[in-house]
Design a binder for these strands. Structure first.
Lengths: 334, 334
DNA sequence: CTGAAAGCGCTTACAG
DNA sequence: CTGAAAGCGCTTACAG
């Protein structure tokens, strides 16, 4: 089939009539599952596109953020963009405006545009929205899932529990016993996993967990600042703080500076994410490296595999994290 | 016209036949200019979309970066995304991979997708690519033009010359006389304008310009670091450095730290851009605030106006900049 | 669940 | 530069 495939040709090859192919393309329910499967595989195989959609296809992938901003989001965008560009796929970027689910206009636009797939970052779809994508066979992948996504939804995250454990173990090894923790929002999975890793590291090194040393904020500088002030004004203040993100760690820096505490002499600080700025701040920030770029790349590959009808090797992946020891952590002084 | 407009209805209203409307839609040359104008205005007015393109339109806008990365790009993305979302327009994001012009596949994708318009950031189109967009009536706007764009191309920038002058005047007012300048790449307009503003501020306050104090790098941390080392190793080193970007200023911080120089006591540093991190570094960075978010918003509005056939008030705009004085600049000591 | 028939929306090829 | 005629690609409405 040298020329652009038409419904008629697909129908002929599938041994059905044109109207039946049309029904499959339009997501109608009244087609036998077996017939649908046969037709869909021919559609994939020949790269069928409806007449109006240009002389050659313009395949797209949708990337949806809960909220855009900061280097964290930028690293993910770059990872997706790189793979998309290499594969000749366009990247459509949206933000939910801070909500956990995209607005209804977005779903409508997706159903219109029929992207190859959708990548959700720190956001989710409700049952209805999922059903609509599934009916059109538009695969979706969740990056860094906020809550429990269904077992059938592919997701790419990182080893948050290990990260929390690793950060805390590092501070324990340096000799700290009073270690404050500033988590992200309580209602996020990644945040709770990191706190559990922290708790485990303390317990397994013989330290009783003090609930007064665990605080939750957002992942931003402001939240880190507020919670750090609260921790540092405690009668028996911690000698080290584990912040849930590098941005929060900057807030901790600011709080410490205001209280006249020197980092790392008076207070050790460890962050989470390893954003580019972790290297440039003073003192350079010890942090847990989250492979954001690779997570984004992987998510893109998984969604493109699904779009091509291939089943990726694994549907639910957590990438390993690493600690990057810099200048913000030392043993407790005096 | 309550229902979705068709070619036949547009043709009827325009008093021509369906084939003529079809030709206009497909960018054919053989239509009288007057006929074309009449048909185009009806197409705009009724929001005509070809049959294949979904039940309701999925209008898009293309945002093209020379290179993605950092908070600078993120601020622009957020500005564009906000306006696009409010207007119900999808955002398609691309990167040229460091080249000044987008790759050919990109142009083909644009011609296929027919976005409402294109926003180029720090990148440009060649004559051929422009002609292709113009033939399809796809407007484009350049943000922060790298070189001289044609007079007919709308562009949104900021007052770089003023910014350069303002930064330098601030250091002069504090009493500095040996002021180093680290520009961006010599071949960019914004960089040359800032250097000229620097030169002007020195001359108009009676200081001879020392060419040895002017260096060019990229806009990244690494470039700032390298050029700062060169400046600070000069026999008669400057007491203040004006960096061409906040990222470069971080490089200057690093170089100063390595040489055991305290900022601001031994060296004043002023940046450019006012990225969010300028507030969080230590010492907080004095810098020139570039209204990136507003530039992006404006560019989006201009391109959407053009897409609707309206002529925006001004085609070439430079937004004002402001100085943000923080802790990294004081008078020369000793 | 499937397809023959009718018909819509758009384009092409060509005459004027 | 324009449009009548032919026809392609797809969908709809309905009979089986």
């Amino acid at each position: 089939m040298g020329e652009r495939p038409t419904i008629a040709k697909i129908a002929e090859q599938a041994g059905v009539s044109a109207p039946t192919v049309s029904k499959v393309l339009n997501g109608r329910a009244d087609v036998a599952e077996e017939t649908r499967a046969r037709i869909e595989s021919l559609i994939q195989q020949h790269g069928y596109r409806r007449r109006g959609s240009g002389t050659s296809a313009s395949p797209m992938i949708d990337l949806v953020f809960n909220q855009l901003g900061g280097e964290w989001a930028m690293e993910l965008i770059r990872g997706v963009e790189e793979v998309a560009r290499a594969e000749g796929v366009e990247l459509v970027l949206s933000e939910c405006g801070g909500a956990l689910r995209p607005r209804q206009e977005w779903i409508e636009s997706v159903l219109n545009r029929r992207p190859l797939g959708v990548i959700m970052v720190f956001s989710d779809l409700d049952a209805d929205q999922r059903a609509q994508l599934e009916a059109r066979r538009i695969p979706f992948v969740v990056v860094d899932p906020v809550g429990d996504v269904g077992d059938d939804v592919p997701s790419i995250g990182s080893a948050n529990w290990n990260g929390g454990r690793m950060a805390t173990a590092h501070l324990r090894t340096l000799g700290h016993t009073r270690i404050g923790m500033i988590g992200g929002p309580v209602d996020t999975l990644c945040s709770r996993q990191r706190v559990d890793g922290y708790t485990d590291a303390l317990r397994s090194t013989g330290i009783e967990v003090d609930p007064g040393l665990i605080r939750y904020g957002d992942f931003e500088v402001g939240g880190g600042y507020r919670e750090a002030l609260a921790l540092l004004n405690l009668p028996d203040r911690p000698t080290a703080i584990f912040a849930g993100s590098d941005m929060q760690a900057l807030g901790v820096y600011q709080a410490a500076r205001e209280l006249g505490l020197d980092i790392p002499r008076d207070l050790s600080v460890i962050g989470y994410d390893d954003l580019p700025l972790a290297e440039w701040v003073t003192p350079a920030l010890t942090t847990i490296h989250q492979p954001l770029h690779r997570m984004a790349e992987l998510a893109t590959r998984v969604v493109l595999d699904l779009a091509r009808g291939q089943t990726p090797a694994a549907l639910r992946l957590d990438l390993a994290v690493e600690i990057r020891v810099r200048q913000s952590t030392v043993g407790p002084q005096g």
